[in-house]
Design a protein around this nucleic acid. Sequence first.
DNA 1: GCAGCGAAGTTGTCATGACTTCTTTCATCG
DNA 2: CGATGAAAGAAGTCATGACAACTTCGCTGC
Lengths: 248, 248
Amino acid sequence: MSQNLPLHTQLYDAMIQRIRSGAWKEGDRVPSEKSLVAEFGTSRGPVRQALASLRAEGMIVGGRGAPPRVQRTVPAQSFDTFLSFTEWARSIDRSPGQRVIEASRRPATEEIARELGIAPDEAVVEVIRLRLLDGEPAMIERSVHPFWVGRHLLAADLDGGSIYQTLLALHIAPVRARHVIDAVAAHPLDAEWLGVAAGSPLLRARRVTRDEHGGVIESADDRYLPSMTTFVIENTAEHRIPLTREPA
Amino acid sequence: MSQNLPLHTQLYDAMIQRIRSGAWKEGDRVPSEKSLVAEFGTSRGPVRQALASLRAEGMIVGGRGAPPRVQRTVPAQSFDTFLSFTEWARSIDRSPGQRVIEASRRPATEEIARELGIAPDEAVVEVIRLRLLDGEPAMIERSVHPFWVGRHLLAADLDGGSIYQTLLALHIAPVRARHVIDAVAAHPLDAEWLGVAAGSPLLRARRVTRDEHGGVIESADDRYLPSMTTFVIENTAEHRIPLTREPA
DNA sequence: GCAGCGAAGTTGTCATGACTTCTTTCATCG
DNA sequence: CGATGAAAGAAGTCATGACAACTTCGCTGC
């Protein structure tokens, strides 16, 4: 499969494989570093680096004199999966669906210009979509893109494909995102699309996605039906994660 | 201050200090590993380990041929700060407050028994508190503890101290937590305490906290006023974090 | 003045060896 | 038979040395 990857990456992949395949079961002790070194024929460095990666994801815990144990067999969702509704739905074996409510080009308001890091009145492209999970409404996604990104979307087949996939094909790759999560009451229009009463509580995730140079690719406002979707975060005393509780 | 800590920990602390003090400014290049090695008089290992920790927290980015840059000067909130309302409020320079609405001992319902990993009808202690930020209502916290934990709380000065601090003093230390985040409509009672209309959207975080042995210390249901508090998460393509979007 | 190229510097990766600290296990003693 | 303690095993920590891959910057030629 992959021959030119660093050793520690190959080891990591091999270990993930064993955990997923059940060769290393949940609660099991992982083989000792010494035996792993012997098996893979490397030095201790790469082995420890691979184990450290697993540990950082919470796949294994413990150690300090004793071999670590397998903690979780389900890995944290990758960046892709967390950013793309389509990828996510597929990863949990649900069929994604969507209805484009609006796709328009317009000048940026002052607020949007600030969020996207562009000048006011520069053109932006706004896409509003209703997202479905197994045919049922799950969330409303409102995303605003600067024109250099958005122009590709106006031309694309929004009903069929995923925005994320479309952009990837154009080598516009998101590498960093910041999510602000809170709750809002459903606007009458949102409520109609989602099939709930106006004023119902919705879980809102506002997202700013950036490319490798720090340029903003999109500013999105996702409103989930809490009965369909939740966010789950795990936290340990050892590992700080980029999660903060902030005053509004 | 600390003399017996591992070298890489000391280096990490020193670097954090420099970032916070502004010696290393945001956007700056971090000194090269070679110069850090020379300055601290260690080998490259501990230096790289310290840098790796900073990187895992998103404090520095880049590298690969070029010295890394300082990305963020505000560290991710520590486990303590994220778990304890009191600690959190203090860390953002707001004064925490609270009113105990209820503190009671009762037999566990089936659902609560399952969450806490105890037998149904075993005793549990439930504490319901209104939490204030600068005197204003910010959230309602409902926490349920197994009796071996809760009995200390019934005896403690709940109005004055923090549950977290109380438990720490008893060597009951949370080390792992799982948060499920969604949105709910305010119950009439909650609404009254929080000073909003019944049915208003609230940001709900359900939390299960465990000790080092995996035993459940508390199962909590926090309901935040979205106008007072939000959760912020940062995500990069390189680092997976224990964050998932899940179907409800 | 600008583009392209090459050298130097820096980080990524890996091996080896050694010591410390903690856990586990097992044998021994009460 | 249980508790205690010693020994063995394992992970944590650190140093040293080396090479590869990448970035940056200055120099040269156009």
